[in-house]
């Protein structure tokens, strides 16, 4: 046993956060204010996601953390260790084995199940913020369903770039009511937002929690003549050969050689162990 309460936060705080989560689930896409606590990490490093995870974890959970799809980046490693230490729970890098997945900026490629929960770290929960700086006004816009402004941004995209150039944090309408920022996931992941798992979003600095229950209808905003497209790099993974996963581009040397690899490390690893090989797969294995 260690000197921390289970999962770091005290029980009163966890109850307060759970109430916000339940309210969020009851009103999908609505941003519920909550009394965000100081966490032992800076704002912007996932304080919202960590508080949501702390409130929902049980001793039986198996926890996975990804940062931009990867299990082995600083943010993911430190949050995983944080809960190993403060909650003593089991952790995993395998998407299918995890019961709670905390994520920054990606949804895993493998389809999530009904018995899983995914927790998103959210920097700016308000999709209207860059169009309307006043919180009083954005709240009113949400309550009155005044979402014309969102399309002004998409219009601007098309008029300046010839296509909707918003590539991440692409706004969605939840269950025909609230417009929601799905956190800065690539728009490639937007179709996956209609999933079987519970989705919880935590914004620590902005003190907001919102949620999407399983099987909720999620529509990415678009125009009739410029429809939403889930885009990715036009390549296959150079390690595992996957053509259907979201890719990171890696510069290899000063001559400009580059490779594309799955951003979801667990997906790539499980494909390679199943015998799939990409363009550079043999070399790097050697």
């Amino acid at each position: 046993m260690n000197e921390y309460n289970f999962a770091y936060l005290d029980e009163q705080t966890k109850r307060m956060i759970r109430r916000a989560i339940l309210k969020g689930l009851a009103v999908p896409g609505y941003q519920v204010p909550f009394a965000s606590r100081e966490m032992p990490m800076p704002y912007g490093w996932g304080t919202g996601g960590v508080q949501v995870s702390a409130a929902i974890l049980t001793p039986e959970d198996r926890f996975k953390v990804i940062d931009q799809g990867a299990d082995d980046t600083t943010n993911a490693v430190s949050i995983r260790k944080f809960f190993e230490k403060t909650a003593g729970i089991a952790t995993t890098e395998k998407t299918a084995r995890a019961s709670v997945i905390q994520t920054r900026h990606r949804i895993p490629e493998a389809r999530l199940r009904e018995d899983q929960i995914i927790v998103y770290q959210v920097p700016i929960p308000e999709p209207l913020r860059f169009l309307e700086p006043r919180e009083t006004e954005t709240r009113k816009m949400h309550s009155l369903e005044e979402y014309g402004m969102m399309h002004v941004k998409l219009y601007e995209d098309i008029s300046q770039h010839g296509a909707i150039s918003t590539a991440y944090a692409y706004p969605v309408k939840v269950s025909g009511r609230y417009v929601m920022d799905p956190s800065p996931i690539p728009k490639f992941d937007n179709p996956k937002l209609e999933m079987d798992a519970i989705q919880l979003f935590g914004a620590g600095r902005e003190q907001r929690i919102y949620a999407v229950p399983p099987h909720t209808r999620i529509v990415s905003l678009d125009f009739e003549d410029y429809t939403f497209e889930a885009t990715k790099a036009e390549h296959s993974c150079d390690l595992c050969g996957a053509g259907d996963s979201y890719l990171d581009e890696v510069i290899m040397d000063d001559a400009g050689n580059r490779m594309f690899v799955c951003s979801d490390t667990d997906y790539c690893r499980s494909r390679r162990s199943a015998g799939h090989v990409g363009r550079l797969g043999e070399e790097s294995a050697a």
Binding site: G148, Y155, D225
Partner: peptide
């Protein structure tokens, strides 16, 4: 006016606010 978006978006805003979702016709 919204000074940070183009003239076309300024004119189109009211159309989009009342539900027009066709870029070509708004433009």
């Amino acid at each position: 006016l919204r000074m940070s978006v183009s003239a076309g978006a300024n004119i189109g805003e009211r159309l989009m606010a009342v539900g027009d979702r066709h870029y070509g016709s708004i433009r």
